[in-house]
Every structure is written in structure tokens, then in C-alpha cells.
């Protein structure tokens, strides 16, 4: 439950660790409406070329949103989340979503905190780098 005055550039957000399996990806299909068989059908040609089903890029993007949402709780709201997909994560493999405060500023009466966010494989590869901005209430 951070307040604007308490937040400092360089603060690390609590990371989230996931290893979404095919069943979890099916839940994401249902929640998001993205039923691309690349994410759930092992016999799909593109999945066979890659070697397995892969995690939806947008599930990783949404997890970057979750990192900031879990951090800010009811103390504010998430204004923006942006990322690029630089690497694939196979279903069942473990990765983490992380964040570190990059900037804080007041703009148009809003207390804004900008967070550098990314997902990271167990070997340290950043597969989904991005930025998020949260609005803090106080």
C-alpha cells in the first residue's frame, strides 16, 4: 500500500513467479478470448515447429500489470502497461515478472509512478520488457 511520498526511484516491486501449464493457458484463453491453438494444441503445426505450446504474449503482459496491481493494491490504479515480446516462453517453464520504480512525478494533478517491468526466464533472459504507470491516491 505505497504512498507517493514513500515511493523512491529504484524501489523493487515484489516479483511474481509463474510456470503456467497448458491447463492454465486454457483458462487464459477463456478469460481473454484468444483461442489461438498455438497456446493449447500440441498437434498445431506452429507449436510442433517451436517444440511445444507457448505462453500467450498477452498473458505475460497481463502479469506485468499484475505485478503493479498487486503492489499498488487499493492505494491507486494502473494507468498504462506497455511491453514488447522479445522471446517465447514454453508452457510449463518457470519465469518471473518483476518491476522497479523508474520515475515519480505529478502531472495534471495526478501522482504518477512509472515502473520498469519485465519477465525473466530462469537463465535471466528478459523475454518481455516494458513500462507501466500507476496513479497513487495519496
Amino acid at each position: 500500500m505505497p504512498t507517493f511520498n514513500e515511493v523512491n526511484v529504484g524501489d523493487e516491486l515484489p516479483p511474481i513467479t509463474k510456470a503456467p501449464d497448458r491447463a492454465q493457458l486454457v483458462l487464459y484463453c477463456a478469460g481473454s478470448g484468444d483461442f489461438n491453438p498455438l497456446h493449447w494444441d500440441q498437434s498445431f503445426e506452429q507449436a510442433q515447429q517451436i517444440g511445444d505450446n507457448i505462453v500467450h504474449g498477452r498473458m505475460k503482459w497481463s502479469t506485468l500489470g499484475q505485478v503493479v496491481s498487486d503492489w499498488v493494491g487499493a492505494s491507486g490504479w494502473v494507468k498504462s502497461v506497455a511491453c514488447q515480446y522479445r522471446g517465447m516462453d514454453l508452457q510449463g517453464t518457470q519465469w518471473q515478472a518483476k518491476g522497479v520504480v523508474a520515475d515519480k512525478r505529478e502531472e495534471n494533478g495526478q501522482k504518477l509512478v512509472e515502473v520498469e517491468v519485465w519477465t525473466e526466464t530462469e537463465s535471466g533472459q528478459k523475454t518481455t520488457p516494458g513500462r507501466a504507470v500507476v496513479v497513487l491516491n495519496a
Binding site: 478470448g33 484468444d34 483461442f35 489461438n36 491453438p37 498455438l38 506452429q46 500467450h56 504474449g57 498477452r58 503482459w61 494507468k79 498504462s80 502497461v81 506497455a82 511491453c83 514488447q84 515480446y85
Partner: peptide, 27 residues
């Protein structure tokens, strides 16, 4: 497959079969 509307705007006939997401941003 993707649950969004079809044919509400122009579509690109490119003939390529593979599809990957490059990046996403919401404000």
C-alpha cells in the same frame, strides 16, 4: 479464434500463415 469482430474494417490479404504478437500497450 480470437473472438473479436470480423469484417468491421478492411482486412489485409497477405497469405502468410504464421502469427506472433510483437508488443502491446494500453492506456
Amino acid at each position: 479464434t480470437f473472438s473479436g469482430p470480423r469484417n468491421t474494417g478492411p482486412s489485409i490479404r497477405h497469405g502468410l500463415k504464421g502469427l506472433l504478437d510483437g508488443g502491446t500497450e494500453v492506456h
